[in-house]
């Protein structure tokens, strides 16, 4: 059984690679686009903070580190689980049924739909992180290296779990655009800055409801020893919790997904 999954998954990456080799120009244009996209995001932070050097005690280098840490986890998720975002389309267009009649797990099938999926952005994230960690003079110890790996994989799991839960809603709700947009904005825009600049409501939302803060903010506070600031202290242990939060969220999201698939089977719609 396991070997069948493995063989299918290998085919998935073979097809992705073949697509990349076939559409070389396209690949390079998108790679260049990705570089510009992140360049503009980082450039904005740099320009902003060239005039305003402190953001609640964070320098631009530290805010950049925050961005790089997020990018690692987010691109890891995007490389392996990107196609989860296609579920609403599959349901709307009625081709989700295909996944139910085939003898492999439906979630696995959704995640192995070949497309223009390449690890270029993940590679870029590693490079960006390399620059960021040297800018903040990250102290490399065994503990910080382990924490970093946990944050990257745990963060990707959080990212994936939340997207899985949102995608699952499409079994009940047809129009999801607005909710997806809000979650995407919380994730992409609100994680760029230290959590401490937000009001209580947003802090609670990003720490407990959609725990994106565990993808970069809490690990970064631990790694950069920024666990106390004016008027607040953060337990450095929080930074270690990322994989735990990721697994909890994933367990919940997966149960929800199962319920969604059963509901879909039940109504047949």
């Amino acid at each position: 059984m396991a070997s069948r999954y493995l063989a299918t998954y290998r085919q998935f990456w073979r097809l992705n690679t073949l697509t990349m080799l076939e559409y070389k120009t396209n690949f390079f244009i998108w790679l260049f686009f990705t570089i510009i996209y992140h360049g503009v995001a980082v450039g904005t932070i740099w320009i902003m903070m060239s005039r305003f050097p402190s953001m609640n005690g964070w320098s631009w280098r530290e805010v950049f580190f925050l961005y790089a840490l997020y990018m690692l986890a987010h691109t890891l998720n995007n490389t392996f689980f990107f196609t989860i975002g296609d579920v609403p389309t599959h349901v709307q267009e009625g081709d989700f049924d295909r996944f139910l009649v085939r003898p492999l797990d439906p979630l696995f099938q959704v995640l192995s739909q070949p497309g223009q999926i390449w690890p270029d952005e993940l590679a870029l994230a590693v490079v960006v992180f390399g620059v960021a960690q040297s800018l903040v003079h990250l102290q490399w110890t065994a503990a910080s290296a382990v924490l970093l790996v946990l944050a990257m994989f745990g963060g990707a799991l959080i990212d994936f779990a939340i997207q899985l839960a949102v995608a699952t809603l499409s079994f009940w709700v047809i129009r999801l655009d607005t909710l997806r947009w809000v979650v995407m904005s919380l994730e992409n825009d609100f994680t760029r800055y230290p959590l401490s600049i937000y009001n209580r409501g947003v802090r609670i939302l990003l720490a407990y409801v959609f725990p994106f803060a565990f993808m970069n903010y809490f690990p970064a506070t631990t790694l950069l020893h920024k666990t106390s600031g004016p008027g607040y202290t953060i337990n450095p242990a929080l930074g270690w919790l990322t994989p735990v939060i990721g697994m909890l969220w994933f367990a919940g999201a997966y149960l929800f997904w199962r319920a969604g698939v059963n509901h879909y089977k039940g109504t047949g719609s």
Binding site: M48, F52, M55, G57, W181, S185, D189, I197
Partner: peptide, 28 residues
Amino acid sequence: TQVFTHIGSVLLRVFLLSMVWTALYRNN
């Protein structure tokens, strides 16, 4: 529905940017 998404996205960003700039001005 697109209209709601557009307006919602603007409001969310207004909210975000007001907090970012307020923090930057308060600190600097």
